[in-house]
């Protein structure tokens, strides 16, 4: 379980997060919706300790991670997998080496054959076992995200964070990614936080949906409640209207 209390972060002149409170319950898939620039990615980066908050607390299964050093954060991070917006594959390595990287770093007891077996298994999960020897530069955007997902799952994480997993993909590829996220949850029982502004993706993968605006949670409900809500902000976001309480930036 992830408990976030009073999280505040200023970037330059902009107060991105202003006292955000949010719980992510064990085993659920939480989708964080919100217009661009409301701090969704910033929130994810705080959960995994890539950014330090100005104020507030983040507890992972009761353990406070705010204030930990890089070295102290590493054991916490090992329990996480993260899919970055642009997949962030290391372009000097092949697809297979990208997936193997964390295993080689953390599980030194594994022999090479076992690492290779695990890499192939994870690439099979995302349907890319044939791409193991390719460099990321030769993959399409959708393929790169799938490799990113395979890499995020390399160390059997308890938590997976997705930063806009379907952004920039065609609707069919986006659905492939959505089904993968859904499938991973059913098979591996991970707790997931998905940051997106893709409503269709949110309905497909979410157990619970929250709306982030101006650095705070403005709506919290199941996909069904979200569909039927008369909350003005959530409605405006679902309908994709420029008229309403959410001011376009």
């Amino acid at each position: 379980m992830i408990e976030i209390r009073g999280l505040a972060k200023r970037l330059g002149r902009r107060q991105v997060l202003q006292g955000l409170d949010l719980d992510v319950r064990a085993g659920e898939t939480l989708v964080v919706l919100g217009p661009s620039g409301t701090g969704k990615s910033v929130l994810l980066k705080h959960i995994i300790g890539l950014m330090k908050p100005d104020a507030g607390s983040i507890r992972i299964d009761g353990e406070e991670i705010v204030g930990l050093s890089e070295e102290q954060l590493n054991p916490v991070r090992r329990r996480f997998g993260m899919l970055f917006q642009g997949a962030a594959l290391l372009d000097s390595l092949t697809v297979g080496e990208n997936v193997a990287l964390a295993m080689q770093e953390h599980a030194r007891g594994l022999d090479e054959a076992e690492v290779r077996r695990r890499v192939i298994e994870r690439l099979e999960w995302v349907g890319l076992q044939a791409a193991a020897a390719l460099k990321p530069a030769s993959l399409s955007g959708g393929m790169r995200k799938r490799v990113g997902l395979a890499r995020a799952l390399a160390m059997d994480p308890e938590y997976v964070l997705y930063d806009e997993p379907t952004t920039g993909l065609d609707p069919i590829t986006a659905d492939v990614i959505n089904q993968l996220i859904r499938g991973m949850q059913k098979q591996l029982h991970v707790t997931s936080v998905v940051v997106t502004h893709d409503i269709k993706s949110a309905y497909t993968v979410a157990d619970r949906i929250v709306l982030l605006y101006q650095g705070r949670v403005m709506f919290d409900g199941t996909p069904e409640e979200t569909r039927r809500t008369d909350d003005a902000m959530m409605r405006q976001f679902i309908e994709g209207s420029s008229q309403g309480p959410i001011q376009p930036v």
Binding site: L73, A88, L89, A102, E105
Partner: peptide, 8 residues
Amino acid sequence: DALRAMGI
């Protein structure tokens, strides 16, 4: 960031 997120 991806390296750091993997604990590397």
